[in-house]
């Protein structure tokens, strides 16, 4: 509705002024809703898992760390289920964040091992985390894209080669 006219009497003017916001359904609605769910899942399961994992490291308890890893895996599974519901995959931003975080944590782990400041429980906790995440990532690619196409996800040909192949 249009902006109300300046000459409308007080009460009536208000009645016409209430509708400045056009009723609209956002085109990005489903994607936004997916993102909200993804954020909620990671805020809950991801951070709780991280906390329990760190608690296991602090207490030298592999079993506790493994529980934290299980929660992180559960967050991934929930993320994939949400993707399935909304018929989409991981966004480029999510992929970059995930791989970046994996690389950063891997670096921290390697530095920790190299500096000899890790207990056996910490070492196995770290190995379990990276092993499970790597295995989970591969399993996701294989189940979503198949053996052949999973490889293609990383094998991006330069434009010149694509042209030549044609």
């Amino acid at each position: 509705m249009a902006e109300r006219s300046e000459s409308v009497p007080l009460r009536q003017s208000f009645i016409f002024d209430r509708n400045l916001e056009v009723q609209s359904m956002s085109n990005r609605g489903p994607n936004l809703e997916r993102n909200i769910l993804v954020f909620a899942v990671w805020a809950v399961l991801g951070f709780l898992g991280l906390g329990i994992f760190l608690e296991g490291m602090a207490r030298d308890l592999w079993s506790l760390s493994a529980l934290g890893i299980a929660l992180i895996v559960a967050a991934f599974i929930a993320h994939i289920v949400i993707n399935g519901i909304f018929n989409t995959g991981f966004t480029p931003g999510e992929t970059a964040l995930g791989i970046g975080a994996y690389g950063f944590l891997g670096l921290v782990f390697v530095l920790g091992v190299a500096s000899d400041g890790m207990t056996i429980a910490d070492f196995y906790s770290g190995l379990t985390l990276f092993g499970v995440l790597a295995a989970g990532f591969l399993a996701y690619l294989l189940t979503r894209h198949g053996l052949r196409n999973a490889f293609s996800q990383f094998h991006i040909k330069p434009a010149s080669e694509r042209e030549a192949a044609k």
Partner: peptide
């Protein structure tokens, strides 16, 4: 345009 009520969406 839709600051106050999110376009009722």
């Amino acid at each position: 345009e839709t600051y106050f009520s999110a376009g009722h969406s």
